[in-house]
Design a protein around this nucleic acid. Structure first.
Lengths: 175, 175
DNA sequence: AATTATTTTCAGAAAATATTGAAAGTATGA
DNA sequence: TCATACTTTCAATATTTTCTGAAAATAATT
């Protein structure tokens, strides 16, 4: 028989390892640091609750790094801390449902990437500028502001909206 | 009279300066380096064609930096090189229309941020894993793949689609 | 209350990323 | 074809970001 216990175990481990590494390096391009993305992938792909020590061991990272990044995951609502009865150590698990955790990521990215831009634009929009240059600058600011506001409304709906909303919108869109 | 020539000129310059600085620091959170975002903001807020030397002077950056980042802007289609008749220096200007340049940014970000994730997921989806862990891993991969594919279809429409598409979709969405 | 287990913090080290500036490359035109 | 004006490249440097590890803090146990 080809798929011995040994072989299939290695397969799963390899697939998981690839997933974790890929997610980690993609994390950087998404404005999330490598370790945080790796821990997220690690928790997503784990059936069991895991401790900080297991993360340190499997991802080869320091205690401080593990602690800091798992905490951020918890802050974002992407992971949860759990206690096992009779044990002192903290265990962690991820929210596994993409339709539940993706909006949480969207919420954080909106906060970091969109809100400051909107604040800046609304400050600039409030200025009364004169002259040819001033006028076209104001036009630019207004257009950027309209555009980001549209994006913001969309994101808010997604973040706060009911589960199927995005999928429904896509269905309508494709028709 | 309150708005003397001097005053309103300073006003415009200050507003523009604030715009450039803000866009620059936001750039970092958007995966675009500070200088590139600053040059983009500088060109967006300029009525005239500008040379590399003007950028160097006004943004206080080196020639290499200016050259490299303005080239990337041109590569992305966010800026254009123009020659003035009888002059040797290269002049640059930005695409000022947000409904024209935003999809170009979306295109580049899709390429960098979404495509590699989709490639990784489709590679992982192709694996036949056994055991309880393997099965739930495959479920995870499938869900992530469905989700990213949906996002990809959406982005493609936006990137390739006609001008008003996004706004129309939003209108429908708000109803 | 003292000991032990566990988590958190944070200054400094390391890694990743961006920028400089001078040298090499190209195009123009005298 | 040589000189000049301008652009591009890239090794060295600077800056920013992330990570480490040991010390401090907190919590549980005896």
């Amino acid at each position: 028989m080809k798929t011995s216990g040994y072989l299939r175990d290695v397969n799963y481990k390899e697939a998981r390892e690839e997933f974790i590494q890929t997610w980690g390096s993609l994390g950087s391009t998404w404005g999330v640091n490598k370790t945080m993305a790796q821990i997220h992938a690690y928790l997503l792909s784990s059936d069991e609750l895991v401790t900080t020590d297991q993360m340190m061991e499997d991802l080869q990272i320091s205690r401080g790094n593990a602690n800091m990044n798992v905490r951020t995951l918890v802050d974002w609502g992407l992971a949860y801390k759990q206690s096992k009865a009779g044990e002192r150590m903290d265990y962690y698990a991820a929210d596994k449902d993409v339709h539940s955790f993706a909006p949480k990521i969207a919420r954080e990215r909106r906060k970091r990437e969109l809100e400051p831009a909107m604040r800046a634009l609304s400050r600039l929009k409030g200025m009364e500028l004169e002259g040819k240059e001033g006028k076209s600058f104001q036009k630019l600011v207004k257009e950027l502001d309209d555009f980001t506001s549209l994006g913001d409304q969309f994101l808010r709906r997604y973040i706060e909206g009911e589960r199927g909303w995005l999928t429904k919108l896509f269905m309508r869109m494709l028709k």
